[in-house]
């Protein structure tokens, strides 16, 4: 971290983990995100809610530059992670994604063994010096993913053979195995049944001890259950951002109130 020559922006950013200012995203001719400003704090769960197509997933994918893999997507504005602009040409998006892990809407285990799925990130980043260390990383990640007890006896079995909820927890374990600082979750429970959803939500609450978690969700109950801060997006605008309790009890913006009471969606 740089010292006394910090810009005012960096000073603000110090309090928060991620600081986005004036973010605009275009998909071809579509203006998907319009001038969004968000501060995401460390060791907090931040939920993005809003109707379908409001840009919450797009904004999430800006935070680890996953939008770079889409040709027609253009991102403008500034996103600071620990005070450093992640869209600076000096930043390697590949390194950034190791620091900002991501869990997707649909469980996407690789067609490999459970062990190899979790060891994938540590292997490509050279996090383990030897097999014993790698075993340890894999076990720790699977424990954090709350799936260790279910799979410890069949680490060599294919990850695609697990149930949907187990697959999603395996994907979370795979993401935490690279020791990220931020974990982005794009509707991680939308493909899961209520029991698996409850397990993943419990897991998200535990992950808060170590990481800054950002979760996109369609379920307002889920946002209320797991998050401390909530951002409401509507038609590409960030309408309201604040403490979850406040958003759900006394929203300031009429659109937020309409949405959480189910009048728009």
């Amino acid at each position: 971290m740089r010292d006394n020559t910090q810009t005012p922006e960096a000073q603000v950013a110090q309090k928060s983990k991620i600081s986005a200012t004036g973010v605009q995203v275009h998909y071809g001719d579509t203006h998907a995100i319009k001038d969004v400003n968000v501060e995401i704090e460390d060791k907090t769960v931040t939920a993005f809610i809003g109707p379908s197509g409001c840009g919450k997933s797009t904004f999430l994918r800006c935070i680890n530059r996953m939008n770079d893999t889409i040709d027609i997507c253009r991102v403008q504005g500034k996103i600071l992670l620990d005070g450093e602009d992640i869209y600076d040409p000096k930043v390697d998006p590949v390194q950034l994604r190791a620091k900002v892990g991501m869990v997707f809407q649909k469980p996407n285990p690789f067609p490999k063994s459970i062990y190899d799925n979790v060891a994938y990130g540590p292997r490509i980043h050279g996090l383990a010096r030897n097999k014993a260390e790698l075993d340890e990383i894999v076990e720790r990640a699977l424990r954090r993913g709350a799936i260790w007890d279910e799979v410890k006896d069949r680490l060599a079995a294919p990850g695609t053979g697990l149930s949907g909820g187990q697959q999603q927890r395996l994907c979370i374990a795979r993401a935490v195995a690279t020791e990220p600082e931020v974990l982005l979750m794009d509707e991680p429970c939308s493909a899961l049944d209520p029991i698996a959803t409850a397990q993943v939500e419990e897991l998200i609450d535990e992950l808060r001890q170590n990481y800054s978690v950002v979760i996109v969700t369609h379920s307002m109950q889920q946002a209320a259950r797991v998050s401390q801060r909530t951002a409401f997006f509507h038609l590409g605008n960030l309408v309201e951002f604040g403490d979850t309790d406040k958003i759900f009890t006394t929203p300031e913006d009429p659109r937020t109130e309409s949405y959480i009471t189910g009048r728009i969606g």
Binding site: M66, T69, Q95, L96, P109, Y120, G121, A175
Partner: peptide
């Protein structure tokens, strides 16, 4: 699958 791998920093 590609997204999963890119998301892990590959």
């Amino acid at each position: 699958l590609r997204d999963g791998s890119y998301g892990l920093g590959a």
